[in-house]
Structure formats: C-alpha cells, structure tokens
Design a protein around this nucleic acid. Structure first.
Lengths: 341, 341
DNA sequence: TTGTAAGCGTTATCAC
DNA sequence: GTGATAACGCTTACAA
C-alpha cells in the first residue's frame, strides 16, 4: 500500500505538500494540487488512518454505546448515526452493554481506550457524576434520552411528559373516563415523566388520577400482561389502558386476545415509542412516536459541529413526540362492557 | 495520559521491557514484571491503540458491514459479534449500506481504509469476484448468508433448502395438500433454496409443485399482501400458504384479517426467519428459526482463530434451521373453505 | 506557496 | 532477560 512518501516523490513535491492537499489545510497552488492528486490516483493511495490519528491526536472515529441492540429501537439509532458520520469520513465504533450494569461502564472505558473523538451514550446505569467527569477528560460526551444537569447542553431528550399527555388526551377526547395506566419502572425518569403527562391530561379534564388504575410494570411484554391481569383484579372498571411503552401494550393485547376481549370495541389500548413492530400487532397499535432517528441524527450533528467544526443545521435538544393513531383505540361506548372482575 | 515512556522511567526499565509485559511477547523476570505492572497501575497507564496499530500494523479492530440496520435481524447479529470481540479486547467498527447497491461497495472500502484486521460481510449486491479479490489483499473476509465458491472456507450459511423443506413438510403432516408459496426474489440464492426445499417436501409426498400456487414477492410485508391477493385470483384453491420470510407472512396475515379469514382455522400460514416480531403478530406466527446469533458468533470465532490466533470452539459453516410451531398453523379440515375467488 | 524536520507512542530487531 | 534504536506513516510548526 502506497505511502505519502511515494506520492510526494511521484508528484515531485514534499511530504508536507501532499499532506496539505489531503487535508485542505493550507492553500496549495492549483497546478501543484493537481499533480499531487494525479499521483495519488495513480498509486491508489489511501492515507493510513492510524498514522494520521497518531500524528494529529485525532482518531476520526466516534464511539456509541447502547444498552441493547436486539430491540426494535437501537438499530435505527445506530444506522442514523453511522450515516451521518460516514458522509464526512468518520468511523463509528460501538459497544453494547447488554443491559448489564457492570458492563455499561466498562463499555465506555473500552471505547475511550480506542481514543474516540467523542462518545454518544444511550445508557441508564452509570451515574450522573461519572458522566460529568467523563466529559471533562478529553472526550466530549453526548447523552441520549436522559437529563444530566451538569451536562445540560449535551443531552438530547424527548418530551416524555408531553407524550404521556397526548395519549391520555386522545383517549379522553374519545370519551373514555376510566383509563388504566401500566407504567414503566418509576425509577426511570422517562417512565415517570410519561405518567406525569398522563396525570396532567386527566386533571385538565377534571379527573383525579386513581391509584387503583395504576400499575408499575417493567417495560417488557410480560409486564404488560401481568399489569393487565392485576388491574382486572381490582374493584374498579376501565374502558381503556395506556402503556408506558409498546412492548407492554403488546402484552396487554395478547392477554386480551386470550380472554376474547374485542379490541378496540371493548377496550382501547395505546402504547408509547412507535417501535417497528407496533403495526405488526393486531389490531395495529395506536401509540406515541419517539423520533429516535432524528435524535440520533442530532447527536451526530452536535459532534460534527463541536468536535469536527463542521457546519450543520441548527441543533435541537428537546424533541416532541407525536400521536400515531391506528386501530387499537376507538370511541368510548356505554354498551361496552367495562373491564373488571 | 501517561505514555509507555513514563512507565518505563517509573519502573526503572527500558521501553522495550514495558512493551514486553504489555504484550506478553517474551519472558520477563517476575520481579521486573511486577515493578512494571505497579508503575502502570500508578500512572493509570493505557496503551495508545493508534500507536500500537501503527507500529504493529494491526488495528485490533474488525469491520462489519450489513445491508440494513433497522430490521429485526441485524441488531442481534452485531450484538453477538461485538460481544465476542470485546471479550478479547478487539473493537468493532461497522457500516450499513442502507440497502443501496452503490453504497455497499463503498462501505467495504471505507472500513478497509480504517485498516481493519478482518471484515464480516452480510451483503448482497457486490459480486463474487470482488469479494474474492478483497480477500486476497491483506484483509481476510468472512461472508454471511451467501455462498461464494472462491471463498468456500469463509462462508457461513444457513441450510435454506432444509428450512423450506421443514415448513412444507410440517404442513403436509397437518394434512394440507394445496399449499401456496410466496417466495422472495428468485435472484437471491436463499430465496431460491427455500423454495427448492419446499418442492422437495411436496414431491416426497407425491405432489408436483403447481406453478399456479407460486408467487414471487420481494421479502417485504406489502409483497406478502400482494402475493396473497394474486394467489386468490387464480382458479386454484389452497388451505395453507408458506412465505419466504416473516415480513411477507405478516403481510398475508394482515390481509387475511381484512378479509375476515380466520387464521389458522381457514388458512394456515408459515413464515421463515423467526424475527423478533414474529410472536407479536396475531395469531403468533409459526416459522422457521434462522439462528442468526450463533452464526454471528461463528463469524467472530473464525476471525479469532485465523486472524488473532486465539483458541475457539470448533468452527461450523453450515447451520440448520428449526421449525418453530406457534399459532398460525393447524390441521387441514375438509370443512374449511378453501381460499379462492 | 512550499520544504525541512521534529515529533506522535508504540513495536520489533538487534545487540549485549 | 534486558536495553538501544530504528521503523511505522503521518501532521505541523517553523523556515524559506
């Protein structure tokens, strides 16, 4: 593989000049540039990125760590990030923590050891302090789906509260009054915010949230099923159930099928995230769209701008969810048997 | 960040010795090794991977290119590959071709410019010749889900024909005789093989495959829907339909719902791949499991063994699919209205 | 505008 | 066993 030295010899210029045309780092006379480019072409020259990195103290690569890769969510994220960086010749190296708390921090360190120029993190278990410290080293960090006060300029988040509001508001609009809620783990801020938005909408409609209609699940399909069963045990009936995410909504739907409950006629169900399988469930799931692709893109833009000094469209930190109406919800009907024991 | 030089000074040894303890590359007296290790710990030393790569001509990273990242398939693949390599301190950098023919080759070149030690490819559009040439350079290639004759030792594939056989065989066993087939694009060898297996089972049962019961789809959900509609137009009735993949099966199920056709009572449906949403469709999809996780792991093992000289479990190139029985299939029943105009 | 030369932090080849 | 020292291929002052 040809080196910069051979190029310089063939073009009859110095190493420095070749480097200049490679990096556009100083003005080079047009004639010279052309001679160099010709030489590069003839030799099929490709800069050795390792040498570049070593000399410039820049790896031209960014790291991404996500908690899970199997799910319907992170593929889209990674895909978008990679696309954005490749367009400017930067590589992305990634690690998955496989939802393991111990591995998460280790993943970050692992990528740092690769001297990535920046890190995009979608993580849950590491502490705010750790993230703040990390950012102070040499490696800017941008954080998805989480608010770290010390890093407020570098967090890209969804307005989860608004999302929760939109879901409940839609159901209220359809005439539902007794709306059950199957939440995600309440130690997670997004799960909490979604429920807060839910309560906002209820109160706005003059309804006080009823603890009897609340169940704390685990964001998994089975959690949805269990939540639905638990809610049915209670004394109070409901005509709709909103879930903290689509997986749990799928769990509810599955159980409803088992019990021969017609959806949406007897029970309206609404999810959250709009993951890629949400239109494979039957009936197709009404849900709240989480614009993960745009958020990934924005993370890339932030780094492009702040780390690589590239021009990008204006940055945005807070994203708005949108209601996606499909077939799992319908008007409240007095005749509909409310769901209760 | 501490360098190897500082470590050597603190430990009172030469650069070379420190390098030796880092790489276990020659015998170092126990006392010396300990002094060096202590120094490394005290300085929080981490080798600079760029410098290592430059000097050793090894990047300690492997590249992965996949055609798509959104789908339900590649996340699992990447996840498994990353896990295997991280365990031995190797990084993985990836690129997605976003199903774009032009980008695919460019993605490969992009990763090669990063001097990856090896490449794992799940690609369709580049030619066999290109792959063979690629492998001859400096960069071993391992290929997933595709047979490249010139690289037969480096291809990891699924026995698609067996998979097709298993699906049809199961339906025959259930008593179905008129079985429609919605295939993937027949220029793809996996799509072809699956159908061949289907025919194998039919002939084994003394049934000659009927071209009227065959439709060539596109592996997409909409293709399944269109295929189902097209098959219904034909003069011949069928009691079951097998699809070249799960997406198309989902399309058939959606259309069946629209037409109020009971599944599986009136129509049995079977997919292929066992993607992560296959149990979210209703009824849960009977399908053929594609062991993508094991295959990704095997790709990693191959590289670990041949490129990094690590010991691994024995390698395996051909994987066997398995029938996964769920709720979209049932016994053939004479009373069942066959599907026809 | 172009050239010279000193790094960048390792590994690897010699000697000792 | 250990230590000098020359690569590795590039960037980047500093000169010219």
């Amino acid at each position: 593989m040809a080196t910069i030295y051979e190029v310089s010899k063939l073009a009859g210029v110095s190493l420095a000049t070749v480097s200049r045309v490679i990096n556009n780092t100083a003005t080079v006379r047009e004639a010279t540039r052309e001679r160099v480019e010709k030489a590069m072409r003839e030799l099929g020259y490709q800069p050795n990125t390792m040498a570049q990195s070593l000399a410039s103290n820049r790896s031209n690569s960014v790291g991404v760590v996500v908690s899970e890769l199997n799910g319907p969510f992170y593929g889209t994220l990674l895909s978008e990030i990679e696309k954005a960086f490749r367009a400017v010749g930067k590589h992305v190296v990634f690690a998955a923590s496989h939802s393991d708390q111990a591995i998460e921090q280790q993943s970050i360190e692992f990528l740092k050891s690769r001297r990535v120029d920046a890190l995009i993190l979608h993580v849950e278990s590491v502490s705010d302090e750790y993230l703040a410290k990390l950012n102070q080293t040499d490696c800017p960090v941008i954080i998805l789906n989480r608010d770290v006060p010390a890093l407020e300029k570098q967090c890209i988040t969804l307005n989860n509260r608004l999302g929760g509001y939109l879901a409940a508001h839609y159901l209220l609009q359809l005439g539902h009054r007794d709306i059950a809620y199957i939440a995600g783990p309440q130690w997670k801020s997004d799960a909490r915010d979604r429920y807060l938005g839910h309560c906002d909408a209820l109160r706005e409609a003059g309804i006080e949230p009823n603890p009897e209609l609340f169940y704390e699940g685990d964001f998994q399909e089975t959690g949805g099923t269990q939540g639905f069963l638990a809610l049915q045990q209670k004394a109070i009936a409901f005509s709709a159930v909103v879930c903290g995410n689509d997986e749990m909504a799928a769990g509810v739907i599955a159980e409803a099928h088992d019990q021969d409950i017609d959806i949406p006629e007897k029970l309206s169900i609404i999810g959250f995230d709009n993951v890629n399988f949400s239109h494979y469930v039957y009936p197709k799931l009404t849900t709240i769209d989480y614009p993960i692709a745009s958020m990934g893109q924005m993370a890339a833009h932030w780094i492009l701008q702040h780390v690589y000094q590239q021009k990008t469209p204006p940055l945005q930190q807070l994203f708005e969810p949108k209601l996606v109406i499909r077939d799992s919800t319908t008007h409240y009907d007095d005749n509909c048997a409310k769901n209760s024991p």
